[in-house]
């Protein structure tokens, strides 16, 4: 790989890592988790210290959101691949949205 290419790749890499850190610090503190459907309508709002298992109905079946210890995850979801369940526990520090395409469900942190 030529030098110019290596430089471009390096810059992209820095942008990626930088972006990761920027988003991490952006999302700290107690937060409201929102479960939205495919039309971006809010189905459920839960604070991350309200523990429990919440049931939401998606396009394919049931989607369960478990909140515990300021973390949340998808459990027991009616979908073929279970990608959302494999994501594991999400916290506001290690944040990523939970997306379930078959059910048309999105679990994000609300903007407030």
């Amino acid at each position: 790989m030529k030098k110019k290419e290596l430089l471009i790749v390096f810059i992209l890499f820095l942008l990626g890592i930088g972006g990761l850190f920027a988003f991490r610090t952006f999302f700290s503190g107690a937060h409201t988790i929102e479960v939205r459907d495919a039309e971006n309508k809010v189905l459920l709002q839960v604070r991350d210290d309200q523990e429990g298992i919440y049931t939401i109905e998606g396009k394919r079946g049931l989607f369960h959101l478990e909140v515990k210890d300021k973390a949340w995850r998808a459990v027991d979801v009616d979908c073929p691949d279970k990608i959302c369940e494999h994501q594991g526990w999400i916290t506001s520090e290690a944040y990523a949205p939970i997306i379930c395409l078959p059910n048309g469900i999105l679990v994000v942190v609300s903007d407030e």
Binding site: I17, L20, A38, L106
Partner: peptide
């Protein structure tokens, strides 16, 4: 495409992760 199909621009938060993993 996911943003277009699901009208959910919030997914764009995955950009840094995607950037690094694609690299």
């Amino acid at each position: 495409c996911v943003i277009l199909l699901y009208a959910q621009p919030g997914i764009a938060i995955l950009l840094p992760t995607l950037l690094v993993s694609s690299l």
